[in-house]
Design a protein around this nucleic acid. Structure first.
Length: 313
DNA sequence: AACACGTGGCT
DNA sequence: TAGCCAAGTGT
């Protein structure tokens, strides 16, 4: 395999790290003393959700569940409820599952090992590397959308990275990563920050970029993206929107809700039934029966809440 | 490998 | 305005 040696790699790392030291945002999960659990929670919440929308829910979550064992001892439905409108509620379920796994298999301590982290539900290659690096100071290739964009511009001279990381891309990222763990961790967070606030997808602020002088994309005159069209995420009228509407009703109610309430939230019967079925399949919703009710009308609830589960008479 | 999966802000 | 985008993961 061809060796991907970045030109002035060590110098680039030093420059970006110095820029980070002077310009880093004050994000609560970056403060000294933040537990690995708190870092893990932040990473779950930040999956596809902007930083500014995560600050408050993150603080409230950690107040309520300061350790994995605290969350593991709570019904998963409460995690889904507390997730609120962060989006992709399956993340809440997986975070709960991760807390259970950490409690049962790792003595209640968030593991530092990459493979152990990867074994947790909802933890993929990015999140595992992020926790190993940010929480434990390990040397890990942290390749999120920000870092991918920075590297593809800086190193390959292209506007955007492809749909999924290629082998070559990972090799480039590995080549930039310093040997020394502490410096590797600083580079990881610094290169992410650069992508988040300077080398942005929409309007990159090249005038504020510490490595603009060696950016291949800039030297090439900022060529536009010429790859295959990036498929947009449609939403209006999709099952996702329907699921969101149904789940919002369930989150807002302490009691199981009936079909009439769900129909009010989403009138189309075919799509509503399909979405409801998928929510049940995902474990986000469970069939329920209100206490004392003799009706055979269906009722629904978040998992583990009052009346949740199909209780016998 | 392509697709499903929430929600909201920005241009 | 209608897209586009946001610290991805699982199938």
């Amino acid at each position: 395999m061809e060796r991907e040696t970045p030109p002035n790699g060590a110098e680039t790392v030093g420059t970006v790290v110095a820029w980070y030291d002077a310009n880093a945002r004050d994000l609560p999960w970056r403060r000294p003393g933040t537990s690995a659990w708190a870092v893990l929670v932040s990473e779950f919440m930040l999956q596809q959700t902007p930083v500014e929308r995560v600050r408050e829910p993150w603080a409230r979550w950690l107040e309520r569940w300061p350790t994995p064992a605290d969350l593991a001892a709570t019904p998963s439905g409460e995690a889904v409820r507390a997730w609120g409108r962060l989006g992709y509620p399956r993340r809440a379920l997986r975070l709960h599952g991760a807390a259970v796994a950490i409690t049962e298999r790792f003595g209640g301590e968030v593991p530092a090992d990459l493979d152990d982290l990867r074994s947790l539900p909802g933890v993929g290659s990015y999140t595992a590397a992020a926790v190993a690096s940010f929480a434990f100071g390990r040397r890990a290739v942290v390749l999120d959308t920000n870092v991918r964009r920075v590297l593809v511009r800086l190193h390959a001279g292209e506007a955007y990275p492809g749909a999924t990381p290629t082998r070559a891309e990972t090799a480039v990222a590995e080549a930039y990563l310093p040997d020394e763990p502490a410096l590797a961790a600083r580079w990881a967070v610094a290169s992410m920050e650069l992508g988040a606030v300077v080398c942005t997808a929409r309007r990159p602020r090249c005038d504020a970029c510490p490595v603009a002088d060696r950016c291949a994309w800039r030297h090439a005159g900022h060529p536009a993206w010429d790859g295959p069209p990036r498929r947009g995420q449609t939403y209006e009228g999709t099952d996702r929107q329907c699921r969101g509407a149904l789940l919002a009703v369930l989150r807002s109610s302490d009691e199981p809700v009936d079909d009439a309430e769900l129909t009010r939230a989403w009138p189309d019967a075919v799509q509503r039934e399909r979405a409801l079925g998928s929510l049940v399949h995902d474990g986000l919703v469970v069939p329920a029966r209100a206490a004392g009710m003799l009706t055979d009308e269906r009722r629904w609830a978040l998992p583990g809440g009052p009346g949740a589960g199909v209780a016998g008479p």
